[in-house]
Design a binder for these strands. Structure first.
Lengths: 207, 207
DNA sequence: CCGTTTATGAACATAGCGTCCAACAACGAG
DNA sequence: CTCGTTGTTGGACGCTATGTTCATAAACGG
């Protein structure tokens, strides 16, 4: 038997309220009172479902994390296989992910997302790095994720954003040479084992 | 005539209180009441000097920003000339900068520092990028700063950190190849116009 | 239809913020 | 040293937000 319809309705409403409010004022500035008002529910109702504003957020983020793991597993071992999928996902669910990844996100949000990405990237790199690598993997991972999050954040806030596969290409172009040089990995920026014949060279002309 | 001694004493105390508290609990968790208690001053005294917890923070950050600009100007045009100086500065003023750059920093802190670095890096890259660069400068800047901040943050929190020049070398190793490929810049990772004969190849063996 | 689960709203206790003010103390210029 | 100026103090106040509690009413679904 599925969850009580009232429960679903309530949680959905709270979830939506937080996301839209985050888009308007940023996570930190959102108050529980506002969430309640926007979701049009009673105060006590909120606290029977969640302990916190943060609790609501984490629930939302867990869903995103699951999605990313699934993408990683479905990307057939390509280096940074999550990347393009994530750019595309942001493109589709722009509203939600702009709230999470953009500048209005807040420390809690970013740290959590960072952690998810760090795990993904570490597994990616561990399986490829040469034993005589010049740079410790942990450090390389931080660098990659830092760069990725910066690109994603800017892109999420961008009003006339590049198409996802172009952002993915830019990311690879910027990051993979350094990783290759530092970890002794051979993969080229346009590394693509199975599909993607040539179109992923869709790099921008200029700014 | 200099500032009234009482004023100096008070501001100093507040400043120190915030930094030590940030190290203990992180910026977000610090309350004005705690600052007051730690600084051992009256509540109203705090508000005659600062409007906010954030106001105190910004004052501190402005000092750091000034330092970075000075370093940039003194680094004689080397690509990412601020980098080594900043790593070294963090090394010396570890306490202060760990509070600012480490994971306990908080969004406000990181955004402000990010802005400073973005300005520095943009100037660095603008003067070098080829007109036919494959990636827009703004995007490259974000990527570099994202990577740099990630390294700096991890390093600031690290208990047995690498020496500064080694971190600087790692950063260059990781970032410069991608930048070179994307912007058509010629500089090698160990780019060094004047000094630094060969010792900057001080890269780590392994993790 | 009826027992069970949710939703509700109002009341309450608590914490932090920022302001105000009148009394007091420290400063430093002359 | 004196005195006008400036800074400090602490406590009271109003406000916003948080999280809890409870009795009542409504919605659920088997």
């Amino acid at each position: 038997m599925a969850v009580d319809r009232r429960v679903r309705r309530t949680r959905e409403a709270i979830h939506r309220a937080l996301v839209t409010l985050m888009l308007e004022k940023g996570y930190d500035a959102v108050t529980v009172a506002e969430i309640i008002e926007r979701a049009d529910i009673g105060r006590s109702t909120f606290y029977t479902h969640y302990t916190d504003k943060q609790h609501v957020l984490y629930t939302t983020l867990d869903a995103v994390a699951d999605f990313l793991r699934a993408q990683r597993d479905a990307s057939g071992g390509r280096l940074f296989g999550f990347s393009r999928a994530l750019f595309e996902h942001v493109h589709e669910q722009r509203e939600l992910l702009r709230a999470l990844l953009g500048r209005r996100g807040g420390t809690v949000v970013h740290n959590r997302i960072r952690q998810v990405l760090v795990d993904l990237v570490r597994e990616d790199l561990e399986s490829r790095a040469r034993p005589d690598a010049v740079v410790p993997i942990e450090i390389a991972v931080d660098s990659v994720v830092g760069s990725y999050l910066a690109l994603l954040g800017r892109w999420a806030d961008d009003r006339e954003p590049y198409p996802p596969q172009q952002m993915d290409a830019v990311f690879r172009q910027l990051v993979i040479p350094g990783i290759a040089a530092s970890l002794g990995i051979t993969a080229a920026p346009d590394d693509s084992p199975s599909k993607a014949p040539k179109d992923c060279s869709g790099l921008p002309e200029r700014a």
